[in-house]
């Protein structure tokens, strides 16, 4: 597959993250090794407290590892200054949160335009880009709503629009559907898998095993380490490159579920 040849975007070697000191010392990440290639859609599963969110925070440069290597695009992250890291967050990484994290006193379009601010885009241009982005998520007519006027699914779509407006190469999603009903979850997941097909790298933390069907690779974590790492056959995501989200997901779901079931039982 093309993906296998592409260079790794993210490389982790023996990554450790310690919380607390002395008796309270606890490693949320305990020697994590992981290589993520461009264009992968990774679902990270695992019990509570296994370090999924910590991993995501470190990948997103919001947190720093205690020990080990983290190379982003071949560059060791710990050597970068805070300003440079903020630049990377602004230009290469898009965050999607479980609790959406829209700023409540800003309108939908202003929320979506917010990341562009820190990229130095002018006001008019920002609103233009944000408006375009919202339209691709079918929220064009909601631009001047306030976040509290939207349903959960719409709010998360706004959040995804915001994560994408800077055209980041990596999207980090921390339980993006955790606060949504299954119908909205489905819509959100299809949006994500659509992004994946457009070539974005997506790393998603989830508790819901059914959602892993959208991913190209499923990683389960346990006690701060990778427990299992399963590649989902990737042909499904590449063959119907038109715009057939519905069909793809169904096929994917069929093939994936047994594979996953095996993993869990083993």
């Amino acid at each position: 597959m093309a993906k296998i040849k592409t260079p790794p975007v993210i490389e982790l070697h023996n990554l450790k993250k310690r919380f607390g000191i002395g008796d309270a010392e606890h490693f949320a990440l305990d020697g994590m090794d992981l290589t993520i290639k461009k264009g992968e859609f990774i679902a990270i599963m695992g019990p509570s407290g296994c370090g999924k969110t910590t991993l995501l925070n470190i990948l997103g440069l919001l947190d720093h590892s205690t020990d080990g290597e983290y190379k982003l695009d071949g560059q060791e992250v710990s050597t970068l200054g805070p300003r440079r890291q903020a630049r990377i967050r602004s230009q290469q990484i898009g965050f999607i949160f479980q609790s959406f994290n829209l700023i409540s006193r800003l309108s939908v379009i202003e929320n979506v335009a917010l990341p562009l601010t820190y990229k130095g885009v002018s006001h008019t241009k920002r609103l233009e880009l944000a408006s375009d982005m919202l339209r691709t998520f079918h929220l064009g007519e909601r631009e001047y709503y306030m976040p509290y006027q939207l349903s959960g699914g719409q709010t998360q779509r706004v959040a995804i629009a915001r994560a994408l407006v800077n055209e980041p190469s990596i999207i980090l999603a921390d339980e993006p559907t955790g606060n949504l009903d299954s119908r909205s979850s489905h819509i959100i997941m299809e949006e994500l898998s659509d992004l994946h097909k457009r070539g974005n790298t997506i790393i998603m933390v989830t508790h819901n095993p059914r959602l892993t069907s959208y991913a190209s690779r499923v990683i389960t974590m346990l006690d701060g380490r990778v427990d299992t790492d399963t590649m989902v056959l990737p042909q499904l995501t590449t063959t119907p490159a038109k715009r057939p989200l519905g069909t793809t997901t169904k096929k994917k779901a069929k093939r994936k579920k047994p594979a996953k079931a095996k993993k869990v039982t083993s």
């Binding site: 630049r87 917010l114 820190y118």
Partner: peptide, 8 residues
């Protein structure tokens, strides 16, 4: 949120 979105 602003920091996550790239604010220094």
């Amino acid at each position: 949120i602003r920091k996550a979105l790239g604010a220094t």
